[in-house]
Every structure is written in structure tokens, then in C-alpha cells.
Simulated scan of single mutants.
Amino acid sequence: MEIKMSDIAEMAGVSKSTVSRALKNDCRVKEETKNNILKIARKYNYQPNKVAQALAEKNTKIIAVILPSAPRSVSDPFFLEFLHGVNNAAYQQGYSLTIPPVEKENFASFKEINQKINFDGVILTEPQLNDPRIKYLQENKTPFVFNGNPMADRDISWVDTDNQLGAYQAVDYLIKKGHKKIATITGPLNLVAGKYRLEGYLQALKENNLQLNEDWIIESDFTEKGAHLAAKNLIKDYNEISAVFAANDLMALGIIKSLKDAGIRIPEDLSLIAFDSIKMGEYIEPPLTTIKNTGLEKGEKAVELLIKIIENQDLAGKHILYPPELVVRDSVQDIN
């Protein structure tokens, strides 16, 4: 005879949540009640259903992951690696994922998702400056963790790589290789990552006493297509500049296409460095010099933090900052 949790609850004269806790050996259940429930479960060879257990405890065991909207989303290799880390850690802890579609910069769309889908907590990506999602989630008492430092309330949990330091390392490396006229194609400057990678570029120029040319700072959108178009504005000045810092690897791919279409060789005519260290960067020609941004580890750590918040466990630290690491390949020419 196959029985359900509700059947055991009825036989034992308790609620389904008490049955669920007893089966987990929860200390809140009286010993006598626990023993009775376990006796019934053994008698009928009961196999607990994880979904039923979660519902009985008023939990869903579901984590929502809010990725950037199309065209990026899982088509961006960095976020695919991040999602792989999230999935690994969630599965090991008995949680499932949902990845709801949220329209770009549409706060109403985000609120609608939060109201329609049941989940225990949410992992958010790409924090904006003055991100409106923070206040909304706090007011609704929804557990959340950011992939990216939102530069807001210190009580907010996040994982990140030091964007400003990583960008600084990239541009400083170009300078050490003899480059003095360096352009950059940035991500959206309303995003924390876009702003602080630009800050790192500016810091490296300033500390090395290099003149800033505003025309060599071009804002893009962290996509291959966006950077392909943006790079066309640099091509007319390429005789003046000797290197470009792309704010992520995906944009570097778009820049490479634009330069190759114009007959400009990398690194012989123009050097290129980027940020993220996606796998694809190893196999393009030339292999891309970049800054490592550990998507897999950040995904795993974000889940670890979130589950501790959901389950009211002690947090050793709410902020996890990974150091950036220069990955030297073949896209930068030494012109000393």
C-alpha cells in the first residue's frame, strides 16, 4: 500500500508539517510523537516526496535566478558559467531553480514575477546604481543575494569580483607594455559593473600620468553586437590609439570582428584586453588577454549565502569579494 504524507498525518493525528519535521529528526517534535510517526512510516515503507515535504513546511525549496534580459541572458557565456555554479550548489542542497523572464529595466515586470511565482529566495544579477529591487524585496521580506556589489545597504548579501581593481590591472598591464593612448568600450554606466570598470580604467590613466581623451570612452551594452557597432567609432581614430580595453570578453569578440572587417590586425596594429575570461576567449585568434572573473565559484557561493538566509543560519560574512586575476594570452603587443 502506497501512502502519502497526509495519510501519515491522519494516522498519527498531527499536521503534515509535523510529519515532515519528524522525518527530518527535527528536535522541535516531541520524542513520543516522532517515534509514532516513524513507526507508521516504516510500517508502510513510506518514501518522502521532496516537493510534498517543502509544501508541508510552507517552503518551496525553489530559488529564483534573475538573469539579464535578452539578448544576453544564458547566451552570455559568463552567465551560463554562473548559472552552472548556482545549479550545482542548489542541487546538492535539495533546491530547484526557476529562471523567470524579466524585461530589461522594467521594474513592473520584476514585481509581477515576484507576485506570480512562489520561491524561497532570489539571486539577482547586474545590480543597478540605486537598484529599486532592493527596497521592494526588503519590504516583502524576500531573502535575496546579488551577484555583484550593489553599492547600497551594508546589510545586503552579495558576491562579486573587484571590478575597479580588475579594470585597473588590465589598463595598467597595457601601460607597462608601452601603450599610452588607450581607448575603452564600456558596459552600461547605470550598472555597477559598468561604472566601476570605467573607474578602474580612469584610475590607471591618472596614476600613470596619461592624458584622458573623452572621445576614446564609448559606452556600449556588454553585448557582442553592441561592441561591434561601437568599435566602428574607434576605427577612424585607430592611427592615434594603440590599445583598447573592452569591459567584458563578449564585447571583445564584437570588437575583433569590427577590426578584422576593417583590415586592422590584433595585436600588430591594435592591442586588445578584456574582462571575464570566458572559455571562448582561449580559442579565438589571437587568444584574448583578459581578467579572470570566476562565474562558477560565484554562483556556488551565492547559493550558499542565500540558503543560510532562507534557513536562518548564521552568516560568517555577507560580502564575498574575489580578487581579479590577469590572464595573459596573445592579444596585447609589447611596444616598448
Results as ranks from 00 to 15, higher is better:
161 T>K: 01
48 P>V: 04
289 T>G: 07
99 I>E: 12
13 G>T: 02
298 K>R: 08
279 K>P: 05
240 E>K: 15
308 K>M: 04
220 S>T: 02
250 L>T: 14
242 S>W: 07
111 K>Y: 02
68 P>A: 06
20 S>P: 00
72 R>W: 14
109 S>D: 08
4 K>P: 05
120 D>V: 12
56 A>D: 06
319 H>I: 06
61 K>S: 13
41 A>L: 06
89 A>T: 14
60 T>C: 02
72 R>K: 15
130 N>Q: 13
324 P>L: 00
141 K>A: 13
123 I>H: 04
261 D>Q: 05
55 L>Y: 03
216 W>H: 03
50 K>T: 08
273 I>R: 02
251 M>S: 05
116 K>L: 15
104 K>F: 13
146 F>Y: 15
122 V>Y: 06
189 L>Y: 02
35 N>M: 15
160 D>L: 11
242 S>G: 06
113 I>A: 07
232 K>R: 12
230 A>I: 03
220 S>L: 01
269 D>H: 01
37 I>T: 04
17 S>F: 06
85 G>W: 10
191 L>E: 15
25 N>S: 09
305 L>K: 00
237 D>R: 15
186 T>S: 05
297 E>N: 12
203 Q>H: 13
48 P>K: 03
75 S>M: 11
183 A>S: 01
185 I>Y: 05
161 T>E: 00
124 L>M: 07
263 G>K: 00
320 I>H: 09
115 Q>T: 02
51 V>R: 00
64 A>Q: 12
118 N>S: 05
309 I>E: 11
87 N>M: 11
241 I>D: 04
28 R>F: 08
232 K>Q: 11
188 P>A: 05
330 D>H: 13
131 D>E: 15
268 E>T: 01
332 V>C: 12
102 V>K: 07
39 K>Y: 11
320 I>C: 02
238 Y>N: 15
71 P>F: 09
17 S>R: 06
331 S>T: 15
157 S>H: 13
74 V>W: 11
313 Q>N: 09
18 T>S: 07
51 V>K: 01
137 L>G: 01
1 M>Y: 14
236 K>Q: 15
216 W>T: 00
232 K>G: 06
149 N>D: 14
162 D>M: 05
148 G>W: 03
148 G>E: 02
57 E>F: 12
59 N>T: 15
269 D>L: 00
226 G>E: 14
301 K>M: 09
104 K>S: 10
99 I>R: 09
53 Q>F: 09
265 R>H: 01
297 E>I: 09
253 L>G: 00
1 M>V: 14
52 A>D: 09
210 L>Q: 07
315 L>P: 03
103 E>I: 10
30 K>P: 03
75 S>P: 12
108 A>T: 09
237 D>P: 07
216 W>I: 04
327 V>S: 04
34 K>R: 10
249 D>N: 02
68 P>M: 08
33 T>L: 06
255 I>Y: 04
169 Q>Y: 14
31 E>V: 13
262 A>C: 02
119 F>M: 11
311 E>I: 09
66 I>S: 13
113 I>Q: 07
10 E>N: 15
216 W>C: 01
111 K>C: 12
167 A>D: 12
278 I>D: 02
172 D>R: 10
193 A>I: 14
113 I>M: 08
50 K>F: 10
121 G>R: 00
292 K>G: 03
21 R>Q: 07
118 N>P: 01
163 N>T: 13
66 I>L: 13
249 D>R: 03
268 E>V: 03
195 K>G: 00
166 G>D: 08
58 K>N: 14
125 T>N: 06
203 Q>D: 12
185 I>T: 05
